[in-house]
Design a binder for these strands. Sequence first.
DNA 1: TGTACATCAGTGAACGCGCGTTCACTGATGTAC
DNA 2: TGTACATCAGTGAACGCGCGTTCACTGATGTAC
Lengths: 195, 195
Amino acid sequence: MRITKQQADENKARVVETAARLFREKGFDGISVAELMHASGLTHGGFYNHFESKEALETAACAHVFDKSVAAIEAIAAIAEPQERAEAFEAYRRRYVSRKVRDYSATACPMVAFAGDVSRQPAPVREEYAAGLRRYLQAFERASAADGLQGEAKRQARLRAMAGARTLARSVAETDPALSDEILEAAVAALEPAP
Amino acid sequence: MRITKQQADENKARVVETAARLFREKGFDGISVAELMHASGLTHGGFYNHFESKEALETAACAHVFDKSVAAIEAIAAIAEPQERAEAFEAYRRRYVSRKVRDYSATACPMVAFAGDVSRQPAPVREEYAAGLRRYLQAFERASAADGLQGEAKRQARLRAMAGARTLARSVAETDPALSDEILEAAVAALEPAP
DNA sequence: TGTACATCAGTGAACGCGCGTTCACTGATGTAC
DNA sequence: TGTACATCAGTGAACGCGCGTTCACTGATGTAC
């Protein structure tokens, strides 16, 4: 059953992508190695050909998710034309607290998806998360400053309010959708438009 | 080994208190029935004399924690003298984002402690959480309005920013205390003083 | 009030189950000649 | 280029372990007389 080296690399990458999706949806402890492997089209026995442990995959998935989130914000901060940049950033913030994004928890922001879980995970996972969070906060701060909002405290409050809204909205999304919607709507109402 | 009815009731109450503490600290799935019973000074076999299942204890603990949190805010909202009330409320908000409170995760706010876990728990636990969150938001809104801050959207943004700060600060507390402190300090800086 | 017995909170061994991980095996790929 | 063999990604059964839950048992409490 030996396969091409390239095929094997693709399989590993696919497992990380699948894990990035399912860990966000169900939590690190909410999905088993066997389930992850089957969701990636493989059987569980081969897992340890690619990863030293489940913890190693958690670390890799965490880094992967933050990479994508940070890249998305940096792309906005990098827009040269100020008006266009401000509009893209406002659209980003509006999308962040939209129902659509809340309902696809598989693509959730890593801050929201992992925050509760991560402090109970082994140290390497926690460290990857902390490093990712730092990168994310810095990228957000850059985009936020470029957006023209004055005062770092105010800019950080904006981020915290967004993250708080998503966390709370998600926690009751299945059980009390009306309350969940209310929380998001209040968050949208509180968005200051781009200047 | 039969004991007094009163003694048995006290034992049950103690298990709920212990669970309220340890579920917040380690998550619903982070502590076993046996550990909970031993932490309450009992052995695990007797658990099912008091609770139908672990899930039933989770529900009871969730309600218990929200009861206490809501009572704390309502006590503030009930203060008659406006100046005194506003000061008490500001002190509450300041305490909420303090390092001291962050470092005692066993007494954490239920919104922060349970938000990540709860959406993966069985329906009764989720429902108890949703009901508790509703009560908490309403109590906070009452206290916030009595504090004199204008605009419901603004008042809710304040709550979300507080919860977001605590969630993020907690998630990196062990791994990156400096970042965790930064997040809390930014939250303190963003607190509008009572009028 | 005193006696006889049923009750039931608590105990600790045992259960089945799912988990992360290991292992012997397979067979196409990659390599040495 | 063709052949012989070593490599190793993938397979699925099996492992030990901790979990939630069950159970037979204990013995002081509560109750019926």
